[in-house]
Design a protein around this nucleic acid. Structure first.
Lengths: 224, 224
DNA sequence: TAAACAATAATAGTATTACTATCATTAAAA
DNA sequence: TTTTAATGATAGTAATACTATTATTGTTTA
């Protein structure tokens, strides 16, 4: 069984809702692909327009600039990840099992139950790993934050923090540990691929050692 | 007592050694200041040239582009941090004490013994927190890595990893824990300032809670 | 001391980026 | 059938990211 999914996004992320039209969905679909292929720095609306057979001006009707598109895309990912987390931890009793799910989700080690026609989740995950942090590492953080653009990321972080507190209600740093877990999962995957000397995972494709590292980090931290 | 310091940089980072001339040192000095003030995205060589009363073309004789300048600056920081680490852990016996020093250095909680005329270390630290990751989060990682541009970061990581192994020779992830510690220290400082809901540190300027979080993370991880 | 050299200043120029504006066309809704 | 909404086509601007050339100045060195 697979579920159809439509994620409702904060309207401040766009000028015109990209989910509402064919062109909008194409911007998202090919935007993800192109950013992944050439990197966010080299990515331009001009190139994207050529790619999908439209004009720069048409894309600017949907997004103020390419940074907003990146924020849209990464924010979409965090929202989707929270859905996945809710879905997969639904029937679980023990917080240890829930934490295992969190880690599996972050390392993309779990089957996706939701379908979204125009979004390739594997490529999207690649973008979040390589470019995701650039959505908030700008001089606009504070303003963007006030517009609640990062709410989905914070919500996810808070949900994970609550699971940590289930396991250890005394723990003093649930949110910091949650954001550390999220960031670390992605950064270590990046290092594994591009700067392996910063890790202990070797060159194999297996995510297993990373999963063990993250489990170790979190469970030891939450231990009394 | 304070020590005069000249850090030898990988020659591939620049076209002409900025340490060798007045203009070069000005590029570094005001470059750091300007990137800090307006952010790396808005930073241009044109603006920097105006700032220091020279021309764009002159700056291009020192650095291929602004990304190389950022890499130079952050790499300088990692090298300097390793010097600091060596200096401050010199007489220490117990690895626990050394780890405390590592954490204090990463959170900038320790007095700097080295003087470098044209570099403001506090501002530099701010850049490493806000912009540092952008030095390696690009499509050029692999090539830059082959040119050894990230060696100082890896050296620092390895040195910290070795301290971890002193405390627990059985520990399976010393490098991953070291890179996680470095990244987490900076990221949590960023979150504390701009996205505090992703942390548990509140709004006070104190670094104490962050230091405790990092100590907890590392020592628990290394515990048997 | 003059000639040679190195570093920088001054200036100009190009392709691309990051937009904004206008107007015509088409397809769907009222 | 008129209105409207979305897109396409086209044009244009300011800034960015460079490269190239030539003149000037200050320092070595023959």
């Amino acid at each position: 069984m697979e579920l159809q999914l439509q994620i409702k996004m904060n309207a401040r992320l766009y000028l015109r809702d990209p989910e509402s039209t064919e062109l909008g969905r194409n911007i998202i679909k090919h935007g993800i692909k192109l950013i992944h292929d050439i990197g966010f720095e080299d990515f331009t609306f001009k190139k994207l327009a050529t790619e999908i057979g439209t004009t720069e001006a048409s894309i600017y009707r949907y997004f103020e600039n390419k940074h907003r598109l990146l924020t849209y895309i990464t924010t979409w990912f965090w929202t989707w990840l929270e859905y996945q987390l809710i879905f997969h931890t639904n029937n679980l009793k023990h917080p240890r099992e829930k934490i295992d799910i969190v880690i599996k989700l972050l390392t993309f080690d779990v089957q996706d139950k939701f379908i979204v026609e125009h979004i390739d989740k594997n490529i999207l995950h690649g973008i979040v790993i390589c470019e995701g942090d650039k959505a908030y590492l700008t001089k606009n953080v504070t303003e963007d934050n006030r517009s609640m653009l990062f709410k989905p990321y914070k919500d996810l972080c808070h949900r994970i923090a609550e699971i940590f507190l289930e396991l250890n209600p005394e723990f003093a740093f649930p949110h910091s540990l949650a954001s550390t877990l999220i960031e670390t999962a992605h950064r270590q995957m990046y290092f594994k691929e591009y700067l392996p000397r910063l890790t202990d995972f070797g060159k194999s494709k297996a995510v297993r050692p990373l999963v063990e590292f993250l489990q170790h980090l979190v469970f030891k931290s939450l231990d009394n």
